[in-house]
Computed example of a mutant assay.
Amino acid sequence: MSKLVEKTDKFVFDLFKNELDNSFLYHNYTHTQRVLKSTNEILENIEMDDKEKEIIRLSALLHDTGYTKDRENHEKESIKIAESFLKDENVDEKTIAAVSKCIAATEFNSEPETILGKIIRDADASHFGKKYFREASEFLRKELELQNIKKYSPTEWLDENIKVLSKKHQFYTDYALQNWQSRKEKNLAKLIKEKQKLKKKLKTEELKAKYKSRYKNESPERGIQTFYRVALRNHIKLSDIADTKANILLSVNAIIISLVLSNLISKLDNPSNDYLIIPTIVFILFSIASMILSILATRPNVTRGEFTKEDVANKNVNLTFFGNFHKMSLEEYEWAVNELIQDKDYVYNSLTKDLYFLGKVLDRKYRILRLTYTIFMLGTIISVILFGVFFKSQTVI
Score class of each variant (00 low, 15 high):
S2I: 02
K7R: 11
K10T: 14
F13G: 05
D14Y: 04
E19M: 03
D21L: 09
N22L: 05
S23D: 14
L25V: 00
Y26G: 12
H27Y: 07
N28D: 14
H31P: 12
R34C: 10
R34M: 11
V35P: 00
N40L: 09
E44M: 12
E44P: 06
M48P: 01
M48A: 11
I55T: 04
I56R: 06
A60S: 11
L61P: 06
R71L: 10
H74A: 02
E77H: 04
E77Q: 07
K80V: 09
A82S: 11
E83G: 09
F85G: 06
F85E: 07
V91R: 03
D92T: 06
K94I: 12
K94D: 07
T95R: 02
A97C: 02
A97M: 05
A98G: 01
K101P: 08
C102Q: 06
A104R: 14
A105F: 06
T106S: 00
T114P: 01
I115T: 06
G117Q: 03
A123Q: 02
A123H: 02
S126C: 03
H127D: 12
F128S: 03
K130H: 12
K131H: 10
K131F: 10
E138V: 08
F139W: 11
L144Y: 15
N148T: 13
I149E: 13
P154S: 02
W157P: 08
E160G: 01
N161R: 14
S166P: 05
K167L: 11
K168C: 03
F171C: 01
D174K: 08
A176N: 03
S182A: 10
R183I: 10
K186L: 12
K190L: 04
K190Y: 06
L198R: 15
K199L: 05
K200R: 09
K201P: 09
L202G: 09
E205G: 00
A209C: 00
K210W: 03
Y211S: 02
K212N: 11
K216V: 02
K216E: 11
E218Q: 13
S219H: 02
E221S: 15
I224A: 13
R233L: 15
N234G: 15
L238C: 08
A246N: 05
I248V: 12
L250G: 06
I256Q: 02
K267E: 15
K267S: 13
L268P: 10
D269Y: 11
N273M: 14
I277V: 15
P279I: 13
I281R: 11
L285Y: 04
F286R: 00
S287Y: 03
I295R: 08
L296R: 01
A297L: 09
R299L: 15
P300C: 08
N301G: 12
E306P: 00
D311W: 04
K315Q: 08
K315H: 12
F321V: 08
F322E: 13
K327P: 12
M328H: 01
S329P: 08
L330T: 13
Y333T: 13
W335N: 12
Q342G: 10
K344E: 15
L351I: 01
K353Y: 11
V361C: 04
L371Y: 05
I375T: 06
I375Q: 01
I375V: 07
I375E: 01
G379M: 08
I381R: 05
L386G: 02
F387C: 05
G388K: 01
G388H: 04
K392V: 13
S393T: 08
I397W: 09
